[in-house]
Amino acid sequence: MASPNQQGDSPSPSSSTSVDWRRRILIPTILAGVAGGGVGLVSKHRKVYGLANISATYATNFAIVTGCYCGAREFVTATRKTGPDDLLNSAIAGFGTGAILGHLQGGQFGAYRYSVIFAVVGTAVDFAALKLRPKLHDFSESMFDKSSSLKLPEWSPIQVLDEEALAAKRAREEKLYGQRKALNKEES
């Protein structure tokens, strides 16, 4: 008898962990890199260092900080054996990540300062993400139908017709085309 994993009834634990890893570490890191590039575009230093250099620098730094924080948060979550929605994991990960990166940047005083900043900001961002996740899920459900294609709102003048409505539309168009053809013959 084959196991459920071989039949495809349920995903294997490793593939589920892989998807969770992408969702909780890789995607925020990429988004932070994009946000860092955007900050570089409006930075006051872009004239001095050049737009490409400053945007790349900000993007890299944002991505490194976010990747370290998200990785630390996942490590703390696995170590404490709690769910990914526990905000204490965010505070601990922010404190540890801030201490390490702050020590590299500014010594012992930098470690204290950055650990508090990372703990507060990381926990606040995770809290906001937890509160916004249901709203974003509802919004995405309202925008897409079951086949993952974009769903037009009810008030939209553009309508997707089923086979029956499409046939009725073709019949109306043929009738109008015939009437127009008859009027053109009468006028000539």
Rank of each mutant, 00 (worst) to 15 (best):
P4Q: 07
N5S: 04
S10V: 15
T17P: 01
V19C: 01
R22F: 15
R23H: 13
R23S: 14
I30K: 07
G33H: 05
V34D: 00
G38M: 14
V42W: 03
K44Q: 13
K44L: 14
H45S: 12
R46Y: 01
R46D: 01
V48N: 05
Y49G: 06
I54T: 07
A56V: 09
N61W: 14
I64A: 03
V65Y: 04
T66P: 00
C68A: 11
C68E: 00
A72V: 02
T79N: 07
D86S: 07
L87W: 04
A93C: 06
G94E: 04
F95V: 05
G98V: 11
A99N: 05
L101F: 10
L101K: 10
G102K: 01
Q105K: 13
Q108D: 04
G110S: 05
G110Q: 02
Y112W: 10
R113V: 05
Y114L: 05
S115V: 10
S115Q: 11
I117C: 00
V121F: 02
G122H: 13
G122L: 10
V125R: 03
L130K: 14
P134Y: 13
K135I: 15
L136K: 01
D138G: 01
L152Q: 12
L152C: 08
E154L: 15
I158E: 13
E164D: 08
E164F: 08
A165T: 15
L166Q: 11
A167N: 07
A168S: 15
K169I: 14
K169D: 09
R170Q: 15
R170H: 14
R170D: 12
R172T: 09
E174T: 12
L176N: 06
G178M: 08
G178L: 04
R180P: 04
K181W: 06
A182P: 02
